[in-house]
Amino acid sequence: MTRYVMVADLNRCVGCQTCTASCKHTNATPPGVQWRKVLDVEMGEYPNVERLFMPVGCQHCSDPPCMEVCPSTATGQRKDGIVTIDYDLCIGCSYCAVACPYQARYKVEEARFAYSDGPTENEALRFDERRIGVAQKCTFCSDRVDAGLERGLTPGIDPDATPACANACIANALTFGDLEDRESNVSKLLTENTWFRMHEHLGTDPGFYYLWEEK
């Protein structure tokens, strides 16, 4: 069995948004749509204020509420835990978007590009008409993972089999890997550090772990 998860080290993340940029480049998401983004979090009251940066996006839950509510079966889950959307089945009702407690889903009604005078070369190359009018979200770069696996590569270790955001992170704060493999990079990180998951009480069993040493 395989369960791909993402580990985000909040003590390392510097909030540079390189993961956000690499995701936008890789997936050519339109303005306003960020499958991966980093929140700038301030906590406490002056003068006792803390600040941290928190990468968010689809948490690829084991028990995804989006999949439960989806009336068309467009939202599915692979055996490796990655939550998927079949753009050809989705009716764009957005029920999944209101069911997701992580604000990870978007719907775009018309083609939009970064600049008003048409798509950039990259946007034109990667534009997918099937994404118009339907739900969309982070895919954990499943196409890269699958292509890498076909070449015998290891997701999370070999860049060609690893999500673009984790590849791009300048602080090595994002780590992707197989949680079922006790010797994997993510297993070691979670074994050796303190961590939490967001909104666990909602019973989603998210596949996104945050390393954090509370001060």
Binding site: V41, V56, Y102, Q103, T194, M198, H199, E200
Partner: peptide, 11 residues
């Protein structure tokens, strides 16, 4: 729902 830090830190 918004976002939140988890209040159950585990090792």
């Amino acid at each position: 729902q918004g976002y939140a830090l988890g209040n159950k830190l585990r090792r």
